[in-house]
Amino acid sequence: MTARRRLVPYGLLAPGAIWLALFFVIPMYFMGELALRSGTFTEGFQPAFEVSNFSDALSGNTDQFVRSFVYAGTATLIALLIAYPLSYAIALRAGRFKLLLLFAVVAPFFTTYLIRTIAWKTILSDDSPAVSVLQFLHLVPEDGRVLATGAAVIAGLTYNFLPFMILPIYASLDRIDTSLIEAGKDLYASSTQTFLRVTLPITAPGIVAGVLLTFIPAVGDYVNAEILGGTGTAMIGNVIQSLYLEQRNYPEAAALSFIMMLAILAVVLVYLRVAGSGAFMGDDEERS
């Protein structure tokens, strides 16, 4: 009986573990193996220990690499700045409109990613009202354009991943016991101080989750740069896509994917150490 009970957690883990093994670990192995092959598409790729694939993939693509992280980082930051006040308003001020507003946040998902991004191409096109307004405000030069610039790619990324930022932050704000905010004010903290010392730290896990959910897919994204960008806005995803689908250089594409994964992992680990440590530690101690 007790032995059986001890097996229960493993039983619950099994589906997820099998899923990860089949669709993550095994493909990773094949991709790693592919990244070390040599040859050409027409002659076939032979197993070798072609480490130069990695250096080849990196050389000449450093710009796209840096750009990926800068674009994704900027988009994540803007999304956070939009999402937090919005989530706050929905969770704590919206009253009976809460569900309606939440629905409005998720509603764009009823259209596919590609269509939504193409819609933004229209919004940002040279003679669109939005761009005219920006030109009128002198945020964009009179003869300047928005489409095909880095700004357009960042705008697209921000828009497309915004719900992933809003939902976890909303969830953490919705759960907050409002008497905690009252307690802060009762203990001589002004509204600003209460926000900084009570509300923000308590909702930090939601921010950490939102940032990860936005940043990670944004780094690897190639659709926004493809549709909204122009020359000199290509991201690492575009390079991988071109290596794989156009140049048919499978080993180098695999090698570049690997490098990107490791880079994201490194950035995320640093981020979690710096920004998330307090929040996650607090969470852990509560559970113990």
């Binding site: 016991d177 008497s179 905690l180 009252e182 307690a183 802060g184 004010k185 009762d186 203990l187 001589y188 903290a189 002004s190 009570v198 730290p201 308590i202 930090a204 307090g278 929040a279 607090g282 509560e286």
Partner: peptide, 18 residues
């Protein structure tokens, strides 16, 4: 509230979890 010479003990305790 933060300018009043009062303090409150809340029904839900409202202790800061962090």
């Amino acid at each position: 509230p933060y300018k009043r010479p009062t303090n409150t003990v809340f029904q839900s305790y409202a202790l800061f979890p962090h």
